[in-house]
């Protein structure tokens, strides 16, 4: 079984990621791409049918954590310390959301991440974010 399949199975084992229908599309070298299909249960604004920001935050948080786990320093585990998200525009209803995260730096105990969420129009992000995660190193 290849590494991506292992990572996909890992994500399927995370109850909330599975509940929101998140799928790991790609992962490696400190980068991760995770998608979430549009679902009427995740609507935040019943008038427009736009997804709730919270569902998009959950997707961006998941992609960020996956990018940390895929970093070449191979952390044993990770957890969110801080997450900041800027919402540029409402996600277009009925479109799948893709979050792309990059863990661009790690120290002994902290990982730094940039993350972007897009709908079908990949030229105009729905949201961008920055995050710091804890980094637990494997016991030698």
């Amino acid at each position: 079984m290849d590494r991506l399949q292992q990572a996909r199975d890992f994500m399927q084992a995370l109850p909330h990621a599975r509940a929101l229908g998140m799928v790991l599309q790609d992962m490696g070298a400190g980068r991760a791409v995770v998608t979430m299909d549009y679902d009427a249960r995740f609507i935040g604004d019943p008038v427009t049918g736009v997804l709730h920001g919270g569902a998009i935050s959950a997707l961006m948080d998941t992609a960020s954590g996956a990018s940390v786990m895929s970093h070449p320093e191979a952390p044993a585990s990770t957890a969110t310390l801080d997450l900041r998200i800027d919402y540029m525009r409402p996600a277009t209803p009925r479109q799948r959301i893709t979050a792309r995260a990059e863990c661009y730096h790690v120290t002994r105990s902290v990982a730094f991440i940039r993350v972007t969420a897009t709908d079908h129009d990949e030229t105009r992000p729905v949201a961008t974010g920055t995050a710091t995660f804890t980094l637990e190193r494997p016991i030698p």
């Binding site: 995370l14 109850p15 909330h16 920001g53 569902a55 935050s57 959950a58 948080d61 997450l83």
Partner: peptide
């Protein structure tokens, strides 16, 4: 994370 177990960071944010 089912190992801990802990609330998903995204749930907390939402």
């Amino acid at each position: 994370n089912p190992m801990l177990p802990a609330l998903h960071g995204g749930v907390t944010a939402a």
